[in-house]
Design a binder for these strands. Structure first.
Length: 299
DNA sequence: AGAAGGACCTGCACGC
DNA sequence: TGCGTGCAGGTCCTTC
């Protein structure tokens, strides 16, 4: 489940591999487009653009593009039966009118993967987009559950739906929750407040801060909110450090290699003893999501 | 407007 | 063995 640390790790790995490369052609599956921007628009806009850099904003991977100086014409992609059956939009590819800057914004959803591969590597099922690069490699978007999204951004730089947990000030953090009566767990998952935090790190940071996930967000004291922000940062940074070591395997080959997980203290440990006090970890539903906490350590 | 709940979607674990 | 069921959860949409 890609949350902030996973997305950051993936973005960094992709950046190392494709920065400076040029998109030669773009292919999109027509199988019920999982894209915010229509595939035909993407197919027309992306070719003949160079990749300036790849970075993370919230849970989004942002690929900064600029018009290539020496545009190359689209080559044809493989002509396997499968490709033909799926049919493609590449016939419509006319190099897009370059803005001063444009961005391909990728959201991985739950099961999305961005792979940088040699073109002859077998294409995984559920491949929804393939960008062929001038270096000969391919940037592939694979997403079995199709919760992922691709979008073209030509307006101002993509800033994400909310605030960055790693850089927000403690004052602004407290301000986010003022007057809100929903559970702090649900508030942490609200991407328009704070973006990048998902179910796992929400549970883990609440445990480390000693806060019960059902507490109304707007009624937590400033001291407890400060502790929460600190815990959140500690957990996210530890996970980023841990993920960095395996990212090259992850994006390079088949994407099967998982991330080195930080040891969960509550997430997925229902019924098992709390690592601090020994009481069984409880699991409840908040905002439709599994929520794990220690009934003794979190108040 | 804020909050809550369901829909989307597929793979997998589980129970019978 | 094989089938049905439930669960996973990020985001969008509808409803209250």
């Amino acid at each position: 489940m890609p949350e902030l640390p996973e997305v950051e790790t993936i973005a960094n790995g992709v950046d190392r591999r494709v920065r400076g490369d040029t998109i030669v052609s773009a292919w999109f599956s027509k199988h019920k487009e999982p894209f915010k921007t229509p595939a035909s628009t993407l197919a027309a806009a992306l070719p003949a653009h160079s990749i300036l850099r790849v970075h993370r904003v919230g849970k989004h991977i942002v690929i900064d593009l600029e018009p290539a100086r020496t545009p190359r014409q689209s080559g044809s992609r493989r002509n396997t039966g499968l490709q033909n059956m799926q049919s493609s939009h590449r016939e419509a590819s006319t190099p897009g009118q370059p803005g001063p800057q444009s961005q391909l914004v990728v959201h991985l959803g739950m099961t999305g993967r961005l792979l940088v591969t040699a073109p002859d590597l077998p294409e995984p099922s559920h491949t929804h987009a393939v960008l062929t690069l001038a270096s000969g490699r391919e940037l592939r978007f694979v997403d079995p559950r199709r919760f992922g999204r691709l979008a073209l951004n030509t307006a101002e730089a993509f800033a994400g739906p909310g605030r960055e947990p790693l850089t927000i000030s403690s004052g602004d953090f407290a301000q986010l929750f003022r007057g809100r009566r929903l559970a702090i767990k649900a508030a942490l998952l609200n991407q328009s407040l704070l973006h990048g935090v998902g179910n796992i790190y929400a549970d883990e940071s609440l445990f480390r801060a000693g806060i019960r996930p059902t507490r109304a967000a707007g009624r937590l004291t400033r001291v407890r909110l400060d502790r929460l922000l600190q815990s959140l940062r500690t957990v996210l940074k530890a996970a980023i450090r841990a993920g960095g070591s395996s990212v090259s395997d992850y994006v390079d080959a088949d994407g099967e290699a998982g991330f080195f997980q930080i040891q969960h203290r509550v997430y997925g440990r229902e019924g098992q003893p709390c690592r601090v006090c020994g009481r069984p970890i409880r699991r409840i539903i908040i905002g439709g999501r599994s929520t794990h906490f220690c009934p003794r350590c979190q108040t």
